[in-house]
């Protein structure tokens, strides 16, 4: 692939930085071919991924860095999220039965579920003591307008 780098942000593992991440993603995604709805969803997915790192990757009181970078071409947007915390492969997290989740009053565990719903590909590698999450969203071709009615059909 020949995606071009669009932007890069490094924050520390403080939930107060999530707003910065969302603002950064909103800004850089405007430079991509994704539509508004898809951009909003990708912002949400990245927020969920970074929030997970903030919450779980580092020991309590430990300050760690989280890197977010975005590459894009006309066909897709690729987000990399890197941290040096504990290894965690989100692909191993199973699907959520939301009714059971509500019945059990479970307030956690929905972030990965959201990410998988939103993104087209979720890849993970642990390399050189760093988690590296790759989230991919494909650019959907624009709608081509009103579908052509089949012969003999009525427009209503």
């Amino acid at each position: 692939m020949d995606e071009l780098p669009v932007g890069e942000l490094t924050i520390t593992n403080d939930s107060g930085n999530l707003a910065r991440v969302r603002q950064f993603m909103s800004d850089v995604l405007q430079k991509t071919a994704l539509g508004v709805r898809e951009r909003n969803l990708v912002v949400l997915a990245v927020d969920e991924a970074v929030a997970n790192v903030v919450e779980h990757a580092y020991e309590e009181g430990q300050v760690g860095e989280i890197g977010v970078s975005l590459l894009a071409d006309a066909t897709r947007v690729v987000v990399h999220i890197k941290d040096a915390g504990k290894p965690f492969d989100p692909r191993e997290v199973g699907a959520v039965d939301i009714r059971a989740h509500v019945a059990a009053r479970r307030k956690d565990g929905l972030g990965i579920f959201m990410i998988k719903k939103i993104m087209d590909e979720v890849e993970y590698r642990f390399l050189e003591n760093r988690n590296r999450l790759e989230l991919v969203k494909f650019v959907k071709p624009p709608a081509t307008g009103t579908p052509v009615a089949a012969p003999g059909s009525h427009a209503g």
Binding site: R22, D47, E48, H101, R106, K107, L110, G111, M114
Partner: peptide, 17 residues
């Protein structure tokens, strides 16, 4: 303006109570 799963989780925890 915005809700993430952590926000939705509050309502998930509360509705049963």
């Amino acid at each position: 303006d915005y809700i993430s799963s952590a926000g939705a989780g509050v309502f998930i925890g509360a509705i049963g109570v």
